[in-house]
Amino acid sequence: MTDLISYLHDVFVTKFDAWVVLGFVAQGFFTMRFVVQWIASERARASVIPVAFWFFSLGGGLLLLIYALYRKDPVFIAGQALGLIVYVRNLYFILITKRPVAGR
């Protein structure tokens, strides 16, 4: 039990710095995308992915990538970098479908 308490103290107290704060803020953004999606789906009584989901994904993914780069974690870096491609691509599709088409 003492080892567990020592470990938790080291992780959550000793190593607490501005980068950890950034990591928690980033994780908060990333988590909000699920909250937004859940609320939108409950209101529609169907599975819905609102545009805000992709913006929270992009913001959280970008901040988590910055955090992962600082921590030098290759698994985390690869996961967040590849996710950003998906988020940007989905936002691109959303933006181009809402843009008026010339000549119509």
Rank of each mutant, 00 (worst) to 15 (best):
V13T: 11
T97G: 14
V20D: 02
N90L: 03
L63Q: 08
A81W: 06
E42C: 07
S41Q: 06
Q37Y: 02
G23S: 04
L4C: 06
K15L: 13
D17M: 11
L8K: 06
R45A: 12
D17R: 00
D10G: 01
L84S: 04
F30S: 02
V35I: 15
L69Q: 12
A81I: 05
K15N: 15
L64G: 08
Y7R: 13
V51P: 06
R45F: 08
G23M: 09
V25Q: 09
K72P: 06
S41F: 07
L64M: 12
D3F: 12
F53I: 00
R71P: 04
A40S: 13
F29W: 03
Q80L: 10
I85P: 01
G83C: 02
S47R: 10
F56D: 01
G83F: 11
L84E: 10
Y7P: 01
M1H: 15
L22W: 03
L82D: 03
H9R: 10
A78L: 14
I94H: 10
M1K: 15
A40W: 07
T14E: 15
M32Q: 04
S6G: 13
R71E: 12
T2E: 15
V51I: 14
A68K: 06
L84H: 08
G61P: 09
L69F: 14
L82K: 06
F93N: 15
F93A: 13
I77P: 05
V88W: 07
A44K: 06
L22G: 05
L95W: 15
I94A: 03
L95D: 03
E42V: 05
V48G: 10
G79E: 08
V51Y: 04
F93V: 12
G61F: 07
P100G: 09
Q37G: 11
V86C: 05
S6P: 04
A81T: 02
L64K: 03
G28A: 10
L84F: 00
F93W: 14
D3S: 14
K72L: 13
F16M: 15
R99K: 14
G59D: 00
A40P: 04
L82Q: 02
